[in-house]
Nucleic acid binder design. Structure first.
Lengths: 266, 266
DNA sequence: TAGATTGTTAATCGATTAACAATC
DNA sequence: TAGATTGTTAATCGATTAACAATC
């Protein structure tokens, strides 16, 4: 096997700076009042022509899945992997894997496949996982508690740096080796620890207020678990995880099977 | 204000039985070995021409968001709502709201808007939320614990009917008023309680096995929280929530701002 | 009638996929 | 060389959106 090629013909890394900036916004409104949905530009910027290597939003969302598969394969000391095999592991089709990986550069070798270690490094780099991203969790209820203890975060390089709650009765309580601090301290905490990512795990009613405080404290990426639509200014990435919405979507297809069982057969 | 029109011209409800059956599959592989991604058909079925009212997957995913906004509006005793206002609340644009709602039928009144109560009933019906959907949670660790106590589920009509774990040390423990039962009892539990939806909250290594057990027990909708790709047979809906993948996506856009700050400006 | 707002059309955009030339 | 597999093209599909006729 030979060295995977570098990406000679395509310098724009990790995605050209002038990319029409898909951000992490997952379907929320924005503060500017412009109705948006799905990915919105973090900003209006340069010509798409200056964008030879913009990575599509759908691809970005799959890279972590490839990463996970590659880690598994690397553990087994496997040196190369084909798009076919990686696709199978990631639950997608091979054409998609090749297209997705082609946005990172020409990192495969025809007739051989992709070098597992090399690809791991590249995906980690593109996703920014070589950096330390301190995370603050706001709202230490049941869910915040579980998130603070979630092994998957630290295992993937995200460090829970602080826990915050608005309830003074919770302040001082130690969860996952961290003391809960009061919401009022958020600006201090964010500055001291250079918090990059805020997780909102509050009730719906407080979610927007907390998001505003996070933004005011300089946090530019927010993951919202509260069952509420929140809006953030341009330049702030927002993603959401809504547990009950997922169940409602399942309910739709479940009832489709009940009402229209034909739809559930081959 | 007048009565919203019924949907005279479009009988196929809640989505024609012969719909090419987008299911709740959110990007996992399937058991048949066919690589899939995003929505896959629950089954290959009839001609798309027999599908006058199939509801697009993207629309189904937004209906719960509209529902939430409508509940809020109904609480304030507001009788009608325009697509413009509903869009603002849901964080999407008005054209999308109108298009989405048009898949349910012609439920609005030109010049007036949508009757809030009527629309609530319709969306609830289409999503199958008028039925009782008993849910089983498998894996009562930190996350399973939090999910069992999550108020959002019961508030939206999902009843946690049983908790299951593979660890006998946990069996008998009472969480959220329910005793934890052993995984071996899953078939009995599923049959007795007519479990429709299974939530997988186990470690990654057990996720596929647990999914297989759920399917064997007759559960046809699965929500996977384990950081693993799992596959299910055709006819079973699968959605996933991957907490650390969400953070990795945020990391990408965060680092884009660091590496290419131009992309984060207006 | 005048103003408001829906429902639908059609243009556009982004994502998916099969196919295959390039090439190891 | 023969077989394997990538990287890319182009067709297709689904989702988004602006615009506006219909109509309350």
């Amino acid at each position: 096997m030979q060295d995977p090629k570098r990406d000679e013909a395509s310098p724009g890394w990790p995605a050209d700076a002038s990319a029409p900036a898909a951000n992490g916004n997952a379907g929320y409104g924005n503060r500017s009042g412009v109705p948006i949905d799905g990915a919105i530009p973090t900003a209006d910027l340069g010509s798409p022509s200056r964008n030879p290597r913009r990575i599509p939003e759908a691809t970005v969302a799959r890279l972590p899945v490839y990463l996970r598969s590659l880690l598994e394969v690397a553990d087994a000391h496997i040196v190369t992997i084909s798009s076919e095999r990686l696709a199978e592991m990631a639950g997608v089709n091979a054409a998609k894997v090749r297209k997705d990986l082609s946005y990172l550069g020409s990192y495969g070798t025809r007739g051989v496949g992709y070098d597992v270690q090399f690809l791991l490094v590249q995906i980690n780099r593109v996703l920014g996982l070589t950096q330390d991203w301190p995370v603050v969790i706001v709202g230490i209820g049941n869910l915040g508690h579980a998130l603070a203890n979630y092994k998957g975060f630290s295992a993937r390089g995200f460090r829970i740096a602080a826990l915050v709650d608005a309830d003074r009765a919770k302040v001082g309580e130690v969860v996952a080796d961290l003391p809960v601090r009061h919401l009022d301290e958020l600006p201090t905490i964010a500055a001291e620890q250079t918090i990059a990512i805020g997780i909102v795990a509050t009730p719906a009613g407080s979610a927007q207020e907390v998001a505003d405080l996070l933004v005011a404290a300089g946090v530019t990426s927010i993951l919202n678990f509260a069952p509420a639509v929140i809006s953030v200014p341009r330049g702030v990435s927002l993603r959401k995880v809504d547990l009950s919405i997922e169940l409602q979507i399942l309910s739709f297809y479940q009832q489709l099977r009940v009402v229209a069982p034909r739809a559930a057969e081959a």
